[in-house]
Every structure is written in structure tokens, then in C-alpha cells.
């Protein structure tokens, strides 16, 4: 087999065909939604108080969930990538387990741990009077549970690619561990960091199963857009389409905007972009 030239101008026909099929597979459902969209009702549905509340709850909780995932996930990814300790593979598996857990089961598992009678939640309730189920904080907990693995995986993979000699060099020049992490390591993995952040945010925004199980469904408090959409589908399918459109528009805009500006995907060939 001959080696392919790097930077070939035109992809092979077969790859093009299959890629086209994949694109069509992703695009058709959205075309389907747009096709059935009751355009004349878009304004009135989106102007509805309940819908605006759901959108607000969704945006607030998903952003918060992404921030929490960042604050906890980056240190976790760093420890997993840089240090060899007994049981590391177990810790790694554990911290990505919620990706494969059916979200509804995840929600029930959260009850058993953070619920009012849960392993840990009963003390939260008894000592601090904090109850997570049926609260906005509960929504964030459910979202972080399913979203953080996306950040951990992405950032850990990138951290493993960073040449350790950069850090060593910086340290010989007198940089403290924190300075090296902040000034050398983090900038080197910035694209992965942002990608992970966006992925976990998007996952949190679309979260349904764990949320409705653990946090319940109360308009203005725990009813996020996916929950509102699901319930609208039963009584008024047209307004459910409009709700989906809002969610798609927000996500698509963010994904599109971030991709080119921050990730440097189209032009950059190196896996680590220069800061």
C-alpha cells in the first residue's frame, strides 16, 4: 500500500460519499424540524412567560454547571494526566462512568446519595437544612454529574500531549509549580480546555433524564428547556417545535462562534495551538 500524500487537495470519493451520508444524517432531523416549524407562532410561543422562564433556568443552570465542571474537572484531569498513583485507572473510569449511565438511573443514584434520605444528603439536610431535590441547585448537580466527564476526558487527553520538558524548563528558570501550570501548561491546552468547556456546557443544556428524576419539574425553578419541550410535546406539539428551535439556535450559535475563533480548527495543523 502506498503512503498517502499529506495535505492532499481532494478527499477520496468513498470518504466523501460516506461523509456526505453522515452530514445528511445529522442535518435531516433539523431540516425536518424547520420544515414543520409553525413560523407564524414563533413570536407568540417565545414571548410566553413560561417559555422565557424555562430558557432562563436552562441558561443559568447550564452555565453554572459548566463553571463547576471547569473548577473541579481541570484539577482532576491534571492529576490524572500528570501523576501516576495506584488506582488511577479506577479513578479515571469512575469519573467518566456517568457518561454511559442512563441519565434516569443517574438521577435515581443522585437521590440515593444527595437526596433527603441519601447517604450524604441526609446530613446536608440535618446539619445545614440544605435539600437539593426540587431546587435549582439540584438541576445544576444533575447537570454537572453528566457533563463533567466531557471536560475531564478532553482536557486530560490534551494534558498528556504537552511535552513535559516545557514545564521542566520553566521550573529551572525559577517558576513555581502554580506559575508553571498557569503560564505554561494551561495556555498549551487552551483549545482543549475551551472545547471541553463547550462540550460540557452543551451536554448540561440538553440534560433531561437526570434533571427530571432528581430535580423534578417546576416552572421557573427546575423546569429547563428540555423538560418544557418534552411536556409541550404532549399538549401542543407545535410549541414544542418552537422551543426546540430556540435551544438549537442558542447551541448552534455558540458552537459555531467558538469553534473558529478559539479552537483554531480549520487552519491549525498542530494539535497544540500557540498561545
Amino acid at each position: 500500500m502506498t503512503r498517502r500524500r499529506v495535505g492532499q487537495s481532494r478527499p477520496p470519493t468513498l470518504a466523501l460519499l460516506l461523509a456526505g451520508l453522515a452530514v445528511a444524517f445529522f442535518a435531516l432531523p433539523f431540516v425536518g424540524i424547520l420544515w414543520r416549524m409553525p413560523w407564524s407562532r414563533v413570536g407568540s410561543v417565545l414571548g410566553d412567560q413560561a417559555v422565557r422562564e424555562a430558557l432562563r433556568v436552562s441558561l443559568e443552570t447550564s452555565v453554572l454547571a459548566a463553571v463547576v465542571s471547569l473548577a473541579l474537572g481541570v484539577p482532576l484531569a491534571w492529576v490524572l494526566a500528570q501523576f501516576d498513583f495506584p488506582g488511577r485507572s479506577i479513578v479515571r473510569a469512575l469519573s467518566t462512568l456517568s457518561m454511559v449511565l442512563p441519565p434516569v438511573v443517574g438521577g435515581v443514584a443522585l437521590f440515593f446519595s444527595f437526596g433527603r434520605r441519601g447517604l450524604f444528603g441526609q446530613y446536608l439536610d440535618r446539619w445545614f437544612g440544605i435539600r437539593l431535590p426540587f431546587t435549582t441547585a439540584g438541576v445544576v448537580v444533575a447537570q454537572v454529574f453528566v457533563a463533567m466527564p466531557f471536560l475531564v476526558l478532553t482536557v486530560e487527553a490534551a494534558l498528556r500531549q504537552v511535552d513535559p520538558r516545557f514545564g521542566d524548563a520553566a521550573r529551572t528558570l525559577g517558576g513555581s509549580r502554580w506559575t508553571v501550570f498557569r503560564r505554561v501548561t494551561l495556555p498549551a491546552v487552551r483549545p482543549a480546555l475551551i472545547a471541553g468547556l463547550v462540550l460540557s456546557w452543551a451536554r448540561a443544556l440538553g440534560e433531561f433524564g437526570a434533571t427530571i428524576t432528581f430535580a423534578g419539574n417546576l416552572p421557573g425553578r427546575t423546569q429547563t428547556m428540555p423538560l418544557a419541550t418534552y411536556l409541550a410535546l404532549e399538549s401542543d406539539p407545535e410549541s414544542a417545535l418552537v422551543l426546540s428551535l430556540a435551544l438549537i439556535a442558542v447551541s448552534f450559535a455558540v458552537l459555531l462562534g467558538l469553534r473558529d475563533r478559539w479552537l483554531g480548527a480549520p487552519s491549525g495543523r498542530t494539535s497544540v495551538a500557540a498561545p
Binding site: I212, G216, N217, L218, T222, Q223, L227, Y230, L231
Partner: peptide, 11 residues
């Protein structure tokens, strides 16, 4: 005032 409005009776 309900704390949650579930999606079905099993909820």
C-alpha cells in the same frame, strides 16, 4: 404549592 410537576403518575 407542588414542589414538582412530574411528567406522569409513576413519577
Amino acid at each position: 404549592a407542588p414542589k414538582s410537576l412530574e411528567a406522569n403518575v409513576k413519577g
